[in-house]
């Protein structure tokens, strides 16, 4: 980049900052609102956007602590939010991990190797993953009921079964990783091969380390997708102690029992772990890649 920065450059930077701040205000509005709602007493709108009176009742209840109101009544937590959160995180972690294990090597094969029917398989994968689990809900239920007869920890109302059902998300990720392998220059691998590396060594020690950013992206995507998945979990999970957050949180906004404030606190609480996972993975997402490899 040119080292001399003119006035127009500085104006552009400032304009970009102004745009960013304005855009962010718009994007973050729901978050700011939900924080405010989680801190105001009661479950109904008070008519002001910024709470005039701060109350931690919703937060206490979301953390599973009974809350005593000023008038002496004690509110009990309506739902085991933390347990649901733990269930969700557990299921999502294993789902994301297993998806990576299953998809990375195949994506590499699709990107680099030649074999009969490659194009057909690739295209059918692309089409297959467009058939969402929600269309196969009844089939999924029937299949896992059958599995449960033989292996109870993979049947209905088991997290093992839910993880297994979530592995159906693999197709999209194979394509994502393959697209990335495609963008890594072949020359790097050729160099390794000339140096006497076996195909697997080339994959393991040359290509795979370069693919860490996309693997992190895929892990995060798979994790988030498993956390936010609602239809399959609502069919497979049945008892309160097994529910994931996605299935459980809809109970907050029932017509007869509208817990808007409690929901707000639980919503923030559950958004945090995923944000944290994302922040950890972000380091790899952003770090520089092939540019260094080819130049060096």
């Amino acid at each position: 980049m040119a080292m001399v920065t003119g006035t127009s450059g500085r104006v552009r930077v400032i304009a970009a900052h102004i745009f960013m701040v304005a855009f962010l205000a718009l994007i973050l509005f729901p978050f700011l609102m939900i924080i405010s709602i989680s801190l105001r007493p009661g479950n109904f709108a008070s008519g002001s956007l910024i709470p005039t009176e701060i109350s931690f009742e919703h937060w206490a209840l979301a953390l599973g602590i009974p809350y005593e109101l000023p008038d002496g009544r004690v509110l009990q937590p309506p739902f085991p939010v933390l347990l649901w959160l733990w269930n969700s995180v557990k299921v999502a972690f294993w789902t994301a991990f297993l998806i990576l294990v299953l998809s990375t090597t195949s994506a590499y094969a699709f990107a680099r190797m030649h074999f009969f029917g490659k194009r057909t398989i690739l295209n059918s994968i692309l089409i297959l993953q467009m058939f969402p689990a929600v269309l196969a809900l009844v089939a999924i239920y029937a299949i896992f009921e059958t599995i449960g007869h033989y292996i109870p920890w993979l049947g209905i109302n088991s997290h093992g079964g839910l993880i297994l059902a979530y592995l159906g998300g693999i197709a999209l990720h194979v394509w994502t990783i393959k697209g990335y392998f495609d963008s890594i220059p072949k020359e790097i691998e050729d160099a390794a091969r000339v140096d006497g590396a076996t195909p697997f060594q080339t994959f393991r020690y040359v290509t795979l380390p370069m693919a860490v950013p996309i693997l992190a992206v895929v892990f995060v995507l798979a994790f988030v997708m498993a956390i936010i998945e609602y239809p399959v979990a609502s069919v497979l999970m049945q008892t309160t102690d097994q529910l994931t957050l996605a299935v459980g949180s809809r109970f907050y906004l029932q017509e007869q029992r509208y817990l808007w404030g409690n929901f707000a606190a639980a919503a923030i609480l559950s958004g945090l772990p995923i944000t944290i996972v994302f922040l950890i993975a972000q380091r790899w997402i952003v770090s520089g890649l092939t540019a260094g490899g080819v130049k060096g």
């Binding site: 998809s103 195949s106 297959l128 689990a133 299949i143 059902a165 159906g168 197709a171 994959f203």
Partner: peptide, 16 residues
């Protein structure tokens, strides 16, 4: 290389 992905897709996508 292909096997894990293909089996996964067979079981978890094609079967349902």
């Amino acid at each position: 290389y292909l096997f894990p992905g293909l089996v996964g897709m067979g079981l978890f996508v094609v079967l349902p």
